[in-house]
């Protein structure tokens, strides 16, 4: 089986952030492997360990995103393609999907897997877009995957329960981090990652036309979220606390 996993380098949402002149600034330039993609990598590794095959990760991003590719290789992916962009492009999901779909056009694969969303923007769009461009059967928000014969079986968290969906290969799936606990690379893994094949292609060499690379949506600025007013904190005897808060909810807030 051949798995392609689309991985993205994103800012660590746990790192301190602030806004300066409408721009998002991180105290430290902390970039990480998108958590949802880490789950996609993990699942691909588990499935190929079980059924044989190969996992290749693909990342579209600037040079410094190599660190993130290494992380996926250290987890156990076999090889990588890095499609390099300029440092400060403002592409939206659609542009990344165009690039990735173009990359996949002449490739052979059984499954393409993506994260269900980028953890910084929560857009959740690229996967479905790639599937549409490549005319692939797809499922989003998978919380479990398995292989039966030539089908990928996805358990998808839907609005009213979990949908068990059978996808003929080749297909595309987007993964939730509820799927698994991504492995932490071992030291051996980290050491091996440096020697694994990594193909680097400049985006400019891919001959995408202007329109495919121009984003129809733009972020024009950032704002601090209005903070909730700090409330009251109660400590003391459970009985008294319970009574006090219950009464406040009833009389002050009228929400009971």
């Amino acid at each position: 089986m051949k798995f392609y996993v689309c991985i993205k380098q994103v800012p660590d949402v746990d790192a301190p952030i602030q806004i300066k002149n409408g721009d998002l600034m991180q105290d430290t330039d902390r970039m990480v492997l998108n958590a949802y993609d880490a789950s996609a990598v993990e699942e691909a590794l588990v499935l190929t360990e079980e059924h044989g095959g190969e996992v290749e990760v693909v990342l579209v991003g600037p040079d410094k995103a190599k660190e993130t590719i290494r992380k996926a290789l250290a987890m156990g992916a076999d090889k990588a393609t890095h499609i390099t962009t300029e440092d400060d492009v403002d592409y939206d999901s659609a542009v990344y999907a165009n690039i990735l779909a173009t990359f996949f056009k002449d490739k052979e694969y059984d499954v393409i897997s993506c994260g269900k969303q980028s953890q910084d923007t929560d857009a959740g769009l690229a996967g479905g877009m790639i599937a549409q461009h490549l005319d692939l059967p797809y499922a989003t928000n998978a919380v479990g995957l398995s292989i039966e014969d030539d089908n990928l079986i996805a358990k998808r968290q839907g609005d009213s329960g979990q949908e068990i969906i059978e996808l003929p290969q080749p297909c595309l799936v987007t993964c939730s981090n509820d799927m698994n606990e991504p492995r932490i690379p071992s030291l051996k893994g980290i050491m091996q990652s440096k020697r694994k094949p990594m193909e680097t292609t400049a985006l400019s060499d891919m001959n995408l036309d202007e329109s495919a690379l121009s984003a129809k949506t733009k972020v024009t600025g950032y704002m601090e979220k209005p903070e909730r007013e700090p409330g009251q904190k109660f400590e003391g005897e459970p009985d008294e606390l319970a009574q006090k808060v219950a009464n406040l909810l009833d009389e002050e807030e009228n929400v009971i």
Partner: peptide, 10 residues
């Protein structure tokens, strides 16, 4: 360059 490493999370 290929043999020396900084390994984190270990």
């Amino acid at each position: 360059a290929m043999e020396s490493f900084i390994a984190t999370n270990i």
